[in-house]
Design a protein around this nucleic acid. Structure first.
Length: 543
RNA sequence: GUCCCCAUCGUCUAGCCCGGUCCAGGACACCGGCCUUUCACGCCGGCAACACCGGUUCAAAUCCGGUUGGGGACGCCA
């Protein structure tokens, strides 16, 4: 579950930290005066890692912040949890994003904390209003309710500028006039020479001021080690020499993602950053920004990705990845939630979870470390499960749009509510249910010719005639009465019930596969049943 | 190329921290059977995995080292 070198990393981290402490007392100079030492923020590493490396495998989801508060003697004041989900509105909400949102939501709800929705729209070119709406719709469909927001980064530019000034003033940031074309050229050259394609620091010490087409870069320490103490993966060490001076503000004055997230997470007082592990490489850079700003770190928890069948990052070519596409395919939100939560998280052998159970049991400790393959088969099974679990009446408004799309005649809700239970055990999605419902709704059924030929043979003329007679005499269509009538006919012709049921099924539904005969008769009602049986008779007689 | 992460049935996973209770448990899918008016549902049973190599140990899926494989990141995207 945890990486094999986990303990080794814990041990290493102990060394790194003691080295960092030494540096702390005698800060070295680096570049343009930025501190070169690593100053682990109080929340960066659990105390257990420092004191006894062997113990640091104990993951504590609340992290050390809670503990340090306790140490100060404020026993009742536990750190309250604030999480966030920050999609960028460049497309619909996809499966992976939904799981991230769900994990954040669950974590916040479990701890009685807050869940914030933030729209990361700093990429003004690619962000669209449609995407924002699509994301909000999907969040609502999944009932991932947020307590604050949605906030928009483009409306917070003043805040970013303020922090940027601080970094500039303390020498942690500088202006750079390298053009994208130049940068690209140098990147390619570095790649060709087998070096890491990082920024070469050309403008680092030029002490440029503001100017047109200039960006602001972060002055990244080039010595030392940055520690990411991940709540899921454990400690991860990064050599600062691997990092480069990332752009904080574009030449058009809009901040970049890596800077905006940090500032937002600081100002929104986010305590736990739970996100996909494709963000791991960004994290040391972000940590360095926190440290330059001298603010405490939030806890980081990086959850493994969701992969497609071929074990590559899940994408469109693996099929539908949009949350709302699944709604259109007739999936239930509770099924998606349950499926998604089990991708990377578990609670013993339990497969089915109600919302309440999820909130009760969810914890970061039970999030796995290896990536998970999205399995449409299991998702379908779960959906079928939840379809069966629903009260039929609650399904009426959900199937209706699918019925309408098929242009089936509209029927009253109570009629649909009677038909639905007969289909619940036999269908996996609302789409299948709508399709299967056809014969309950149309006035004229379409009959499968092969089925008609096989089952509506002249031999059935007499049994059908007798059946019609006895059904005509029946007052109520309760199951017992129906069964009695059918058994009587069967007995009269010394046929097994199946011999008569199958032709009746074909006459009533046009198919050889359907819900139980008595169920169908009960839903359809006397009039329709008799009419269809008579039509069956007509067919047998060669009409 | 460089850095980082990951590794139990085909898939999702339990077990791994605290070695023996694991010739590895559950679920999906698949295959049988039962139930039965068709098809389902349900129930019962079956198939199927500790990536590899070393080390530590009386004992390793579990601890350590390495190898291989897979994935991710290296943007004035997020």
């Amino acid at each position: 579950m945890r990486g094999r070198d986990y303990t080794a990393r814990c041990r290493e981290i102990g060394q790194v930290l003691s080295a960092a402490e030494k540096n702390f007392s005698a800060p070295a100079k680096c570049g343009g005066g930025a501190p070169a030492f690593i100053k682990p923020a109080p929340t960066a590493v659990p105390a257990s890692c420092l004191s006894s490396p062997g113990n640091c495998v104990m993951r504590n989801t609340l992290g050390i912040a809670g503990q340090s508060i306790m140490k100060k003697g404020v026993h009742l004041l536990m750190e309250s949890v604030i999480t966030r989900f920050p999609p960028s509105p460049t497309g619909f909400l996809h499966i992976g994003g939904a799981r991230t949102a769900l994990f954040n939501w669950l974590f916040a709800r479990h701890h009685g904390g807050k869940f914030i929705l933030r729209i990361e729209d700093t990429d003004v070119v690619r962000s669209t209003d449609e995407a924002i709406k699509a994301i909000l719709d999907a969040m609502e469909w999944l009932e991932l309710t947020w307590d604050e927001g949605p906030f928009f980064q483009t409306q917070r530019l003043e805040i970013y500028r303020e922090y940027l000034q601080k970094l500039l003033a303390t020498g942690h940031a500088y202006y750079c006039e390298c053009t994208p074309a130049d940068l690209e050229e140098r990147r390619q050259a570095a790649l060709a020479a087998g070096r890491k394609p990082k920024y070469d620091g050309r403008c680092r010490d030029r002490e440029l001021g503001p100017g047109p087409n200039r960006v602001i870069r972060f002055r990244c320490p080039q010595v030392g080690t940055t520690v990411l103490n991940d709540l899921i993966k454990g400690p991860i060490l990064f050599d600062n020499a691997e990092l480069d001076d990332l752009v904080l503000q574009r030449s058009d004055g809009v901040p970049t993602y890596n800077f905006a997230v940090v500032i937002d997470d600081i100002t929104m007082e986010i305590t736990h950053v739970i996100r996909g592990d494709d963000h791991v490489p960004n994290t040391p850079r972000q940590i360095l920004i926190y440290q330059a700003l001298e603010v405490p770190l939030p806890h980081f928890a990086h959850v493994p990705m969701i992969l497609g069948r071929d074990r590559a990052k899940l994408s469109k070519r693996h099929g539908a990845t949009s949350v709302m596409a699944y709604q259109e395919m007739g999936y239930l939100p509770e099924a998606l939630v349950n499926y998604l939560v089990r991708l990377g998280w578990s609670h013993g052998d339990q497969e089915i979870f109600s919302r309440e159970e999820l909130i009760e049991h969810y914890s970061l400790e039970n999030v796995g470390t290896s990536p998970a393959v999205f399995d449409p088969e299991k998702f379908l099974w779960l959906n079928a499960h939840y379809l069966r679990a629903r009260r039929p009446e609650s399904l009426v408004p959900l199937v209706r749009p699918f019925l309408a799309a098929r242009k089936y005649p509209d029927k009253p809700a109570d009629y649909l509510a009677k038909a639905i239970p007969t289909l619940q055990p036999r269908t996996h999605t609302l789409v299948e249910m709508a399709d299967a419902m056809k014969f309950y709704l149309v006035s004229e059924i379409t009959c499968d010719p092969a089925a008609a030929k096989k089952h509506l043979s002249p031999a059935m003329i007499e049994p059908f005639t007798k059946l019609i007679h006895s059904l005509e005499k029946l007052d109520g269509f309760d199951e017992a009465a129906l069964e009695h009538a059918f058994q009587e006919v069967a007995a009269a012709f010394s046929l097994k019930l199946g011999k008569i049921a199958q032709p009746v099924r074909v006459a009533l539904t046009g198919q050889t596969v359907s819900p139980g005969i008595f169920e169908i008769v009960n839903v359809l009602g006397k009039e329709t049943v008799l009419e269809r049986l008579r039509r069956g008779l007509d067919y047998m007689r060669g009409h």
